[in-house]
């Protein structure tokens, strides 16, 4: 059985002015279903670029990328949207919740684009909010929630479509230490329940939650330890 994520010689280059920047310079990597992976590295190491590729938000310049059996490079724009919608849950450092919109509407947002009717969106979002411990805050707007609670709403949103992969980009970057631990506990629990979790972080304490750590420097993997 092939791995959930297969990367072969991934290269990503950007042109900045007349300079060609190699953000990724030949990355090969397999991630199996159910893994808990931390991708580490300093700013500019290529970890965010890889994250964008793994989330199908961007296309590699060359190389091969298969996620859940899909050749991502072969997908057209609408197919990529549908693929993201069904396969990947995103958690961002800045939460990215819609302002003046209730927690349940925020958590159910991806389901709008799955074409689900309103009633079912609400039901599924409620279930996920309960799962992250916000069952009593479903009508609250982001401004009425603490940072940790906002990130929980964001996690509920990432989970609402039953994704195969949870991609978290510095999920605790905007939170204090105590709240960070609570959020990380949620990821730990989700992974125990079988979801593949990929964290992008530069914090060792966060990365220590993962069972596998991949370190990037200058666009290549310099360390991959389990």
């Amino acid at each position: 059985m092939p791995a959930l994520i297969e990367c072969r010689d991934l290269v990503k280059t950007y042109t900045m002015g007349d300079q060609v920047v190699h953000a990724l310079n030949g990355v090969s990597l397999d991630i199996e279903a159910g893994e808990y992976v931390a991708i580490m590295g300093t700013s500019g190491s290529g970890k965010s670029t890889l994250m964008n590729l793994l989330g199908a938000l961007d296309q590699p310049s060359s190389g091969e990328l298969r996620i859940a059996g899909e050749n991502v490079r072969a997908l057209g724009p609408d197919a990529v949207s549908r693929f993201r919608n069904r396969t990947i849950g995103f958690v961002f450092q800045q939460f990215n919740l819609l302002p003046r919109t209730s927690a349940v509407e925020n958590a159910g947002l991806p389901l709008i684009y799955s074409g689900l009717p309103h009633g079912e969106r609400v039901a599924r979002a409620m279930k996920r909010l309960q799962q992250v411990g916000l069952g009593d805050r479903t009508d609250h707007h982001p401004a009425q929630l603490s940072g940790g609670q906002q990130q929980r709403v964001a996690i509920a949103r990432a989970l609402v479509n039953d994704p195969k992969i949870l991609l978290a980009d510095e999920p605790t970057g905007a939170l204090d230490t105590k709240t960070s631990e609570d959020i990380m506990a949620i990821f730990d629990q989700l992974n125990r329940e079988g979801i593949t979790v990929i964290l992008v972080t530069h914090e060792q304490e966060v990365a220590d939650h993962a069972r596998r750590q991949i370190v990037f420097r200058d666009g290549v993997i310099v360390e991959d330890r389990s």
Partner: peptide, 16 residues
Amino acid sequence: TREIGLRLAVGARRAD
């Protein structure tokens, strides 16, 4: 802009 980015990330097509 961020809202649009988010919508695209969670599966909105450009047409949406």
